[in-house]
Simulated scan of single mutants.
Amino acid sequence: MHRCDDNMPFLLQYEHVAWYENGRVRILDRRIYPTEVRFVECVTYHEVVRAIADMVTQSAGPYTAVGMGMALAAYECRDKGKAEQAAFLKQAAYDLAHARPTTANRYGIITNHCADVAAQALENGEDPIDKIVEATVESLNRRYSTMQTVGDYLADLIPSGGTILTQCFGETIIGTVMRAARKQNKTFRVFCAETRPYLQGARLTSSCFAQMGFDTTVITDNMVAYAMQHEGIDLFTSAADTIARDGHIANKIGTFQIAILAKYFGVPYFVTGIPDQDKMSRQDIVIEMRDPAQVLSYRGIPNTVPEVKAIYPSFDVVPPHLISGVVTDQGVYAPYVLNHYFDRQVKAFY
């Protein structure tokens, strides 16, 4: 089976994201990586839903996990009649897609396609489990190859020998921009904001860049202004969990304030990703509110006294006037004309 994860760091290899095999889905527990390399094993698709909701995998990881979760759902209902299997998989597609609300539209494209593939397999007398796994790997290949084009465009924007700042864990774009830079014989320094409260920038993004040989530095989230003022940041970049047609984007909480600082210091901010066809404007973006307890403690260690409260909006929204460009597979768009992305025929991404 052809795969597009060659020359990718550990975190971006398919089996190290989420993988179905023999009635189980193994998901790398990114909450504790790289302190430990441990996988969460799911034996029902509901456990996959819970793993996604509990942040066992984040960023683009759930795009793989929901597909593999559909294979597990097919395994669970394998002894039922065709009609019962179809109904079971339709429900699984909905449940997996809605594991996290902000990106339910994207997950749903994958899970509904898996349900359709399974239905066709049943009609053809084929194994729906195998066909769903194949469809999920094909989806991975589409995303990796499409994001390689995005990574090529982003690498063109980074000055050779320059310094970039990242926010959270952009996953696929991280691997593809590194492959593009190597192809161009381009080197650059990377500063990674740690991204509280889960520290994805510190634990995940910095690990990928460092493992691939890039000069990598982690800063706490409140050091961004200092780094822009004193460390020669040439470019700020992030992926986006949602890109609306009107140029608003949603990304990990904290992205908005970094974008404001970038504007103040004259540092261009380039968002990477594929616009969401069904998100017309800011009003279509749903912000997930997570359990405040995740702010009050980390890895079971309380950060506060019991009387203290917290809030945890998982994402915030960056308005288009703070974005220098949205880097897509069709090139770089000014955010105010992003809707023109859909003037061309759009290839399947998920």
Score class of each variant (00 low, 15 high):
3 R>T: 13
5 D>I: 01
6 D>G: 11
8 M>I: 03
8 M>V: 03
9 P>V: 01
10 F>S: 09
11 L>R: 05
13 Q>T: 03
14 Y>H: 09
16 H>D: 07
17 V>E: 10
19 W>G: 03
23 G>P: 08
25 V>E: 07
27 I>Q: 08
29 D>V: 05
31 R>A: 09
33 Y>A: 07
38 R>H: 14
41 E>R: 05
42 C>V: 00
43 V>N: 11
50 R>N: 13
50 R>G: 09
53 A>R: 13
57 T>C: 15
58 Q>M: 10
59 S>N: 14
65 A>Q: 05
66 V>H: 06
73 A>F: 04
80 K>F: 13
80 K>A: 12
80 K>T: 03
82 K>H: 12
83 A>N: 10
85 Q>K: 13
90 K>T: 11
90 K>Q: 14
91 Q>V: 04
97 A>G: 07
98 H>D: 09
105 N>P: 04
107 Y>R: 06
108 G>Y: 08
109 I>H: 04
111 T>K: 08
114 C>M: 15
116 D>G: 12
118 A>S: 12
119 A>W: 11
120 Q>S: 14
120 Q>V: 03
125 G>P: 03
126 E>W: 05
127 D>W: 01
127 D>I: 00
128 P>S: 06
132 I>M: 07
132 I>G: 14
138 E>L: 06
148 Q>V: 01
148 Q>F: 09
153 Y>E: 11
156 D>M: 06
157 L>H: 08
158 I>E: 12
164 I>Q: 05
165 L>T: 01
165 L>R: 01
168 C>F: 02
170 G>P: 07
173 I>Y: 07
175 G>D: 04
177 V>R: 01
178 M>W: 04
178 M>D: 11
181 A>S: 15
182 R>L: 08
183 K>W: 06
184 Q>R: 15
186 K>T: 03
186 K>N: 07
187 T>W: 09
193 A>T: 08
194 E>R: 02
197 P>R: 03
206 S>H: 02
207 S>Y: 06
209 F>W: 07
209 F>R: 04
210 A>Y: 04
211 Q>N: 14
213 G>S: 04
214 F>L: 12
218 V>Q: 11
220 T>M: 10
221 D>L: 00
221 D>V: 00
223 M>I: 00
231 E>A: 08
231 E>T: 00
234 D>Y: 04
236 F>A: 02
237 T>W: 04
240 A>D: 10
241 D>G: 15
245 R>Q: 13
250 A>F: 00
251 N>V: 00
253 I>F: 14
253 I>T: 12
257 Q>S: 15
260 I>P: 02
261 L>E: 09
262 A>R: 00
263 K>F: 08
266 G>N: 10
266 G>E: 06
268 P>F: 07
269 Y>D: 07
274 I>C: 08
276 D>G: 11
276 D>E: 06
278 D>P: 05
279 K>E: 12
282 R>G: 05
283 Q>S: 14
283 Q>N: 15
284 D>S: 12
290 R>N: 13
295 V>W: 01
296 L>T: 02
297 S>L: 00
300 G>A: 03
307 E>G: 05
309 K>N: 12
312 Y>H: 11
313 P>H: 03
316 D>M: 03
317 V>P: 14
320 P>S: 05
321 H>I: 02
321 H>Q: 13
323 I>Q: 04
329 D>K: 01
330 Q>V: 02
332 V>A: 08
341 Y>I: 09
341 Y>S: 15
347 K>N: 13
